[in-house]
Each structure stands twice: as structure tokens, then as C-alpha cells.
Amino acid sequence: MIRDVNEKAFTTLKNIPFAPAYKHTLVSVNSGFRTEKPVCNRDKCNGCFLCYLYCPDGVISKDGESISINYDYCKGCGICQKICRKDAIHMEKER
């Protein structure tokens, strides 16, 4: 799921909590300021999952023997591409 609720769901006295405390909630994605995105070549990937481990945003998840990337929250930092020993990830320019 990209978002839990719409940002506008919390704007009035009626729908904001009585104190600044609330459960985990996502109302916006983080991909807006990305200029490049990582793309994984599953043929080259050996499933070492170092990219998954080192991702600051936790957007890479294990997917069988390889990985999948959540592009809604990936900021395109490129750490995954650098950490990959098999050259399985390359960065693609966002259009």
C-alpha cells in the first residue's frame, strides 16, 4: 500500500487526535525528489541481500532469490548499486 490515508483526513478539530500521539501512518510518498532509480537485473543477482541490508529507507525487500524495490519510497540514493558485488543493480535516469 502506498498510503494509509489521504493527507486531508487530518485537518479539523474533529479528526485530529486530542494529543500529539497516533499510530504509524503514511500520507505521502517519497519518490518526488528522485532523479535516478535503481533497477535490478535478476539474472545477475545472487541474493546476498546486501542492498536490502544497507538501504537507509528500507525500500528493498527480499523476493525469492532476488529482491524487489518499492519505488514509492525509494529516494534513488544509489547505495544499493554501490554495495552490490555482482553489478546487478544499475541506476536509470528518471524521465
Binding site: L13, I16, P20, Y22
Partner: peptide
């Protein structure tokens, strides 16, 4: 819960009013 969080200009008045 996420507690003692930040509330920007959009909701700050409502929290303070409460």
C-alpha cells in the same frame, strides 16, 4: 504509537485549541 510528534501550521492551532 508515534508520540510527541510535530504538527505543522496545518494542524498546530487545532492541537493548541484542544
Amino acid at each position: 504509537k508515534n508520540m510527541a510528534f510535530t504538527a505543522g501550521p496545518d494542524t498546530n492551532t487545532e492541537f493548541k485549541y484542544k
